[in-house]
Amino acid sequence: MSKNKINIIHSTFVPLNIENVDTDQIIPARFLKGTTRDGFGKNLFRDWRYENDDDSKPKKDFVLNQSEYKGQILVAGKNFGCGSSREHAAWAIHDAGFTAVVSSFFADIFKNNALNNGVLPVTVSEAFLKQIFEQANNAILTINLPDQTITIDATGEKESFEINNYKKECLLNGYDDIDYLLSIMNDIEIFESA
């Protein structure tokens, strides 16, 4: 089943300068009761966004409530996405309009979940992350997946990032892992009977 394709992302970003952002913050457990993949974006960072769980009382100091911050790229402190394996976290981020998350370190399961949902996790050095956080709120980042680079447009500072070739092809073409696995069913059945 094809997913959204990613090639070059050229966008302003939302800075979330917090470390160890766990998936319970990204989407609290009480919002995991859905049986479809839709609609999780409105509860993204729910308890950091609203006072007393009340939609009508946004917390002014939280970035997602500040109109000067917007864009397709979320930039966060190290160890982003730790904790629960809930894919709802990746769905919520995608549903809220993000196509890439930049951090100096990602938790394993979140990284896989993001990749499986057309959200590109971009791992940068601590120093580069710091430079991004120092940019003005309308600064633009360019994430070039074919070249595997991320650039701060205003300064021209550039860093390359890792992604395995298989996953890169999947994102560029909108393929998913099931398409691939179904294409090797014969190998799987041979493995089983061995």
Binding site: S85, D177, I178, I188
Partner: peptide, 20 residues
């Protein structure tokens, strides 16, 4: 190990996962 829902779907469909 724990997996996401897309991976649950992969295991449903093929009993396999792509893992590094």
């Amino acid at each position: 190990f724990g997996i996401g829902t897309s991976e649950v779907e992969m295991v449903f469909a093929t009993q396999c996962l792509l893992q590094s």
